[in-house]
């Protein structure tokens, strides 16, 4: 009996550790996107000058920068979750959800992101194009939160990112009418701040889980 109790106590600690690793992976992912997104936007806003400097067309430059940023971001995200999944895997084995269902939810989230960006790029008029990505990302993040909450777990760090993006887009609308350049800089800062805030919030949750204070 003593042995069984020992195993049970160890399993509870292992579960806490796997939750901690998952939160840390989320935190690192949000922080890396919080660094990459504004860097990508800086390149995008200065695409005319930079493409001329490199003596390539604007389209090629935009495509190249987007591809590099997306590859770095996705590569880091995959690496992050794979590193954390050594223990998570054993936990996932115990859950009822099949890999098929899990990938369905992944596809749902990707679809929401795709539709949001297609919508803003197609229907939002030119003067507001600077801040339209903020609306798209904010909306897509909140829908992703709802999907994950319904089928997996609650990730409040996503709400932090989504709410910061959507709320700060209100003053951006006013700013874009008066000073487009300033609005561009503000967009970069808002992206960075929202993702970094979400990432650090995730680290706070991870620390609480580790100490058993959650």
């Amino acid at each position: 009996m003593e042995e069984i109790q020992k195993v049970n106590e160890a399993l509870l600690i292992i579960e806490r550790y796997s939750n901690y690793l998952a939160r840390k992976a989320w935190g690192k992912t949000l922080i890396i996107w919080g660094i990459l997104t504004p860097i990508g936007l800086v390149f995008y806003f200065n695409r005319q000058a930079l493409s001329a400097l490199l003596e390539i067309s604007v389209e090629t430059f935009t495509l190249l920068v987007s591809a590099i940023m997306i590859l770095i971001g996705i590569g880091f995200t995959i690496y992050n979750f794979i590193s954390a999944s050594r223990i998570l895997k054993t936990k996932e084995d115990q859950t009822a959800e099949s890999p098929k269902e899990s990938s369905m939810h992944g596809i749902m989230i990707a679809f929401v992101w795709f539709i949001s960006f297609i919508f803003v790029f197609s229907f939002i008029p030119e003067p507001l194009s600077v801040i339209s990505t903020v609306w798209a990302a904010g909306f897509a993040i909140i829908i992703s939160f709802l999907i994950l909450k319904k089928y997996h777990d609650t990730f409040p760090e996503l709400i932090v990112v989504g709410v910061i993006l959507l709320i700060s887009s209100i003053p951006l609308v006013v700013l874009v009418m008066t000073d487009v350049e300033l609005a561009r800089i503000a967009t970069v800062i808002i992206y960075s701040v929202s993702f970094l805030a979400g990432g650090f919030y995730s680290f706070t949750i991870a620390t609480d889980i580790l100490s058993g204070n959650e």
Binding site: K6, V7, E9, A10, I13, I14, R16, Y17, Y20, R86, I87, T90, T207, L210, S211, G212
Partner: peptide, 24 residues
Amino acid sequence: QPRFTIMFLMYLNKTVGFTELQRL
């Protein structure tokens, strides 16, 4: 108990930080 848990954790994850172990 702590030694068993330490070994169990490391059997699953190979490496664990000292501070992480201490808090856990």
